[in-house]
């Protein structure tokens, strides 16, 4: 069965997107990207400290991937816009994941600033993927501002707690005519499968893969879970029931 996934009209080969942070080495990151099959891979942008030296992360990303810079480090819309423009000037392309995070303790995004940045960057031709607190009214504002998808958090970044925003994700999926990409907090392949079973178009994972004992193995496990969850969503899960219902006939043998 053909199941085409598009964002902003572009065909995306995998519903599993991978972040590049926290890997033990560049080599393990490269191997994990390959094992994940991810088509969309995120990177960040930072000031370079004098004398510290820096390698070129982009050279460790296998060819044929969409490299999507994020605006991590931005606390508001203006900073997010600045980072996005800088990344594009540097040749990173038009894809941008907006993070506008004023809160270092919980790393929760500021939806208002995220919506503002989305509007500015969408008008400048960026393919905008905003990371936000799942809220239907704000999701509609992001859509109206020109977002190519919405990226609601499953749980706070790096917590590995899973789809704690489950009910809100379900509402976004049912009400929104944009791809819903669950980002952040997915700690296990089963969490990714759950997000996909709820109807998410894709998931983005980083920490759970990068800090695993075998990042490439975990990347493959997530990729399989994403496929399984997607297939289940398309097939349609049976409704949950309060009482048991036999799967074998209850009559005609002993009685």
């Amino acid at each position: 069965m053909e199941d085409i996934f598009k964002i902003a009209g572009k065909k995306i080969r995998s519903r599993f997107m991978l972040g590049t942070g926290k890997f033990p080495s560049d080599e393990s990151m490269t191997e994990a990207i390959k094992a994940s099959g991810a088509h969309v891979v995120t990177v960040a942008l930072r000031r370079v400290d004098a004398g510290a030296g820096s390698g070129n992360i982009l050279s460790h990303i296998p060819p044929g991937r969409i490299v999507m810079p994020n605006t991590s480090g931005a606390r508001n819309a203006a900073e997010a816009v600045r980072i996005a423009r800088l990344a594009r000037e540097a040749g990173a392309g038009d894809w941008i994941k907006i993070e506008a995070i004023p809160d270092n303790r919980h790393l929760l995004p500021d939806n208002l600033e995220t919506i503002k940045a989305t509007g500015v960057l969408a008008r400048e031709g960026f393919i905008v993927m905003p990371y936000f607190n799942p809220d239907l009214a704000d999701a509609r504002r992001l859509r109206d501002a020109g977002a190519a998808s919405v990226m609601p958090l499953g749980a706070p970044i790096g917590t590995n707690k899973g789809v704690t925003t489950r009910e809100l994700i379900k509402i976004l999926v049912s009400e929104l005519d944009l791809p819903v990409v669950v980002d952040a907090g997915l700690g296990r392949p089963s969490h990714a499968a759950e997000a996909m079973e709820l109807g998410a178009a894709a998931v983005l994972v980083n920490t759970a893969v990068a800090v695993s004992g075998d990042p490439a193995g975990m990347a493959e496990a997530f990729a399989l879970a994403v496929k399984a969850g997607r297939r289940a969503w398309l097939a349609g899960a049976g409704a949950a029931r309060e009482l048991a219902e036999a799967s074998s006939p209850l009559t005609g043998f002993l009685r």
């Binding site: 972040g19 590049t20 942070g21 995120t42 942008l45 930072r46 920490t207």
Partner: peptide, 27 residues
Amino acid sequence: VLRPAGWKETALQDGDAVEVFSFVTGG
């Protein structure tokens, strides 16, 4: 933003503000 093509020919002036960034790993 100052594109790479201009790096060799751009002499810095006293009081200039320069920011240097690099792509790094991140989610």
